[in-house]
Amino acid sequence: MERPLIAVLNGPNLNMLGLRQPEVYGVATLDDVEQVCVQAAEQLDVAIDFRQTNGEGELVSWIQECRGRARGIIINPAAYSHTSIAVLDALLAVDLPVIEVHISNIHRREAFRHTSYVSRAAIGVICGLGVRGYALALHAMTDMILDEDDQ
């Protein structure tokens, strides 16, 4: 039986993890985040498609590609959380469960970061728990997929 696929999509500047504002985001790199996700996926017996882009249009295209291909989306839209109706619309259009992840606690930061358009499409949001938030999101998404399969 084929393992369920979960897309793990990352937005702009996450390729700079470990270099950009380590006092906010920590010292883990995006490669470290991917390894956290790979290890969690192996334990959970799910497949992941881990990607990062700095481009809004590319992120929208990747979300659209998930329809009919993935069972769920874990997304760290980064700054697009606060600015992109296009990302929100794409997430709503694919009709998949979405978990939004942020490494930092966006609610303890600048006021403009307190609003996330993406949250309107998400069934859950994990923020402020560092890179371990990705593993938590994978656990939650896997549980939802298993619950759905049991129905």
Rank of each mutant, 00 (worst) to 15 (best):
P4R: 05
P4Y: 05
P4H: 06
I6P: 13
N10M: 09
P12W: 04
N13T: 07
N13Q: 10
N13E: 14
L14W: 00
L17E: 10
G18D: 12
P22L: 02
Y25P: 04
Y25S: 05
Y25H: 04
G26F: 01
V27W: 11
V27Q: 15
A28W: 05
T29E: 13
V33P: 06
Q35I: 05
Q35M: 15
V36T: 12
Q39N: 15
A41K: 06
E42I: 10
L44R: 10
L44D: 12
D45P: 01
D45E: 15
V46Q: 09
V46A: 06
I48H: 09
D49K: 07
D49G: 07
D49L: 15
Q52N: 14
Q52I: 02
N54R: 09
E56H: 09
G57T: 05
E58K: 02
L59T: 01
W62A: 04
W62S: 08
Q64S: 13
E65K: 04
C66E: 13
A70C: 15
A70G: 10
R71V: 01
G72H: 07
N76F: 09
A78P: 12
Y80N: 13
Y80K: 03
S81I: 05
H82I: 00
H82M: 09
S84K: 01
I85F: 13
L88G: 00
L92T: 05
V94Q: 09
D95I: 00
L96E: 07
L96H: 01
P97L: 08
E100N: 08
I103V: 03
R113Q: 11
H114M: 06
S116D: 09
Y117M: 02
V118E: 03
R120S: 15
R120W: 02
R120M: 15
I123V: 03
V125K: 14
I126E: 08
I126A: 05
I126N: 08
G128N: 08
G130P: 09
G133W: 02
A137Q: 12
A140L: 14
D143H: 06
D143L: 12
M144L: 14
I145P: 01
I145H: 02
L146S: 13
D147G: 08
D147W: 07
D147E: 15
D149K: 01
D149C: 00
